[in-house]
């Protein structure tokens, strides 16, 4: 069943057409991967889907609702969360605080904040959940460290942990394992699989096919702002990857 669909997305930066009619379809519960050489428009596409950039043309549908050009804060409430290509940790805050930001507590309203009974119960729940997630990500021992002091790979994990706080429907990740050691990279994707079992949909941009190939259900290849190949399931994905056009782009790179 389809959960996300884009139709002919076009995005200009000045005169430069970074997205040139991109249509993709993501199935619920799948891990969908987008690959493509540097500058092919992968991040731009993700930014349009998550509301960080406005599309010039085209539509985005999530669960059949039109979400084109909605604000990121609104998309969160539809169940879409994302991580960024460059990690965006809250540097001066602890790992635990970084996770807690993943969920909204009524005590974020100043008037509620003044009264414990308005927010403590939710806070208790959130703290429990945060520690469970930290355990799951093997980060428990780092809970009181400032996020700015973590390694790149650990920061990526914290971002994923934060995304998990919300019980999202879909997690969008831009290069979650770039610059991460292979061992940890496989750990991250094993987590992705576990979450997939729980019914979460993933839309992922990643360069490192060697590592991620075995984890994915659906593949798109982008080039110059267009989708040039697509394959669903092991067979088709194999075929896509042996497609001369795709091979050329990757060797050309």
């Amino acid at each position: 069943m389809e959960i996300l669909r884009t139709e002919n997305i076009v995005k200009y930066f000045g005169d430069f057409k970074a997205l040139d009619g991109v249509s993709i379809s993501v199935n619920k519960g799948d891990v969908t991967l987008i690959i493509g050489p540097n500058g092919s428009g992968k991040s731009t596409l993700i930014n349009v889907i998550t509301g960080f950039l406005k599309a010039d043309e085209g539509k985005v549908y999530f669960e059949n609702k039109d979400i084109t050009n909605k604000e990121p804060s609104e998309l969160y409430h539809h169940g879409i969360v994302r991580t960024f290509q460059t990690p965006q940790p809250l540097k001066e805050m602890t790992v635990l605080e970084n996770l807690l930001i993943g969920e909204i507590n009524p005590g974020e309203r100043p008037l509620n904040a003044l009264f414990y009974k308005k927010w403590i119960p939710k806070e208790e729940e959130m703290v429990e959940k945060a520690f469970k997630i930290l355990e799951f990500l093997k980060l428990s021992h780092l809970y009181d460290r400032k996020a700015g002091e973590l390694s790149g790979g650990q920061m990526k994990l914290v971002e994923i942990g934060r995304a998990l706080m919300t019980n999202p429907k879909m997690i969008v990740m831009d290069e979650p394992i770039a610059g991460v050691a292979p061992g940890l990279a496989h750990d991250i994707f094993n987590h992705v699989l576990e979450l997939k079992e729980k019914g979460i949909t993933f839309l992922i941009v990643e360069h490192r096919l060697d590592i991620v190939l075995r984890y994915i259900d659906h593949l798109y290849v982008m080039f110059n702002g267009q989708i040039i190949a697509e394959g669903r399931g092991e067979e088709e994905i194999k075929k896509v990857l042996s497609d001369p056009k795709v091979v050329e782009i990757y060797i050309g790179e």
Binding site: S73, Y76, V81, Q88, K91, E92, E97
Partner: peptide, 14 residues
């Protein structure tokens, strides 16, 4: 504090 540290993250989280 989260807003001070990173507005985009805070936006992405609703």
């Amino acid at each position: 504090r989260a807003m001070r540290e990173n507005e985009d993250t805070v936006k992405a989280f609703g």
